[in-house]
């Protein structure tokens, strides 16, 4: 009995020290991590729409629906959105920028964990640059990489699907 209390006490003490250490580290790093995430997001947005000078989030219920892109004169020039589709072994997340006329500015794969040498190739420029100037609702001229159909279709279909959803949302903005 006495032993058991001692064991419990020792383990509790170790856990308390660990928890204290972790919350201290968390306090020190939290604002830094948030700032890093924000900077990374802005950099990614800039990549899919280099013409824009500023992006603002459009939220609904705490979730980011899409971004508005403004040029240096604060004129709305387009939108950016995240699309996610199930690939072969992961959900492939893509960031896409579209101009007001519905043509794609550029896309960038931001989260992917597919088979190296196969599915991972959809993140490469040789695949993503096909999207430039395409109509976001059809993407008719984008070709899947041969042998990488599932991952390619995941990117293409998720962008089309999200663009269709957004079409309704942004109808009133033009």
């Amino acid at each position: 009995m006495k032993e058991m209390v001692r064991y419990g006490f020792t383990l509790a003490l170790i856990c308390v020290i660990s928890a204290g250490l972790l919350s201290a580290v968390d306090m020190l790093t939290r604002s830094k991590i948030a700032a890093q995430a924000l900077a990374e997001e802005q950099a990614a947005l800039k990549e899919v729409m280099p013409e824009a000078a500023k992006f603002t989030e459009v939220k609904s219920g705490g979730e980011i629906l899409y971004y508005r892109a403004f040029d240096s004169q604060d004129k709305l020039i387009g939108f950016a959105f995240k699309a996610g589709g199930k690939g072969y072994s992961s959900v492939i997340e893509t960031l896409a920028g579209i101009f007001l006329d519905g043509k794609i500015s550029a896309i960038k794969v931001i989260s992917i964990n597919e088979t190296p040498g196969l599915g991972m190739r959809v993140a490469q420029d040789s695949f993503t640059r096909q999207f430039k100037g395409q109509d976001a609702l059809s993407l008719s001229a984008v070709e899947a990489i041969s042998g990488v159909t599932i991952s390619s279709r995941a990117v293409i279909d998720s962008v089309i699907k999200k663009a269709q959803e957004l079409k309704e949302l942004i109808k009133n903005e033009k």
Binding site: L11, I14, T29, Q36
Partner: peptide, 27 residues
């Protein structure tokens, strides 16, 4: 650390270490 509960103690220590490294890397 008492011998009988060494494994849970080790796991807590290791997990703490990993989490600290992860947070520092992220920041």
């Amino acid at each position: 650390i008492p011998n009988k509960i060494r494994i849970p103690c080790f796991i807590v220590i290791i997990a703490t270490f990993v989490t600290i490294i992860e947070l520092c890397l992220k920041a």
